[in-house]
Amino acid sequence: MAEKARSSKALMVLAVVAGLAVAAAVVYDFWRALTVNPENPWAEFTLSKIFFGYRNLMFAVGAVVWVLGTAIFVLELAGRTVTRRGLERNRMGVAEWSVIDVALAALSAAVYGGLLAATAPIVFVPGFTWLRPANALAPLFGMFFGIPGCLGAAIGNLIADIVGGFFGVGSFGGFIGNFLIAYLPYKFVRDHSFSSASSIGEFYVWGVLAQAFVSATYICWWLDVAEALVGLPLFVVWGIIAPIIFSNNIVVNAVLSPVLGRVLFPLIKGRGLYWKDRIKAAQV
């Protein structure tokens, strides 16, 4: 028993180390790419090489992610969730939403969209400013507020596109992509408190590494497929946008989300808004 706990803890520590290492490697590698080729760092950036160099593989993976992600989005909003036992009620489908769920989703969207719109992106490396601290909230909204929080993140991103003047066909990918950023840690991290090794370790697996890859491939697959409607060349889609999404989501969520999560979880629980508590209360 103790042996199992020790190995589980070691795995969690490994996940945190891996998440932070990938985040650090991304920052370092882009800095290196910029030093080697200041005119076109994307040609040197390892992530660009991977996403664009293996575009066919990424496209195939993206197709699977897209189909699964979209199906999950529809199912969860319809009140069903996939479990080991098959499809089960998630008790958070839109039809079951109370006014609290509507308020939670609307306010999550307004805060996420408002922070995205009102805070300037910060400098990643000089000349490149795509790190958006507000992105750290998406996985937390999912973990703390459940499906209303996931939809809040999706709508918030859409609203940021609208008010920023970026709304277009590509926004559809960003809409469900942001839903998935919130959804993965909501669904797969078992302890949302950020106060145990397993909570933080699982967050680094699902809320940092997995969500960054899933959101990048989901959004970029859509941009690739809709190329004739969106107008972005494949190099820009896989060589620039995919690495940007991936590195932003890795770095921001590895650095900021656990700090915010640790501070916010007790507040949210104390106000009776943690989704597991709300479902339990509703059942009682």
Binding site: A103, A106, A109, A110, G152, I155, I159
Partner: peptide, 17 residues
Amino acid sequence: KVALTFTLALNLLPSTV
């Protein structure tokens, strides 16, 4: 409810910003 959520979020955005 989704339409209401979207509209509320849009209406709340200026005060949030």
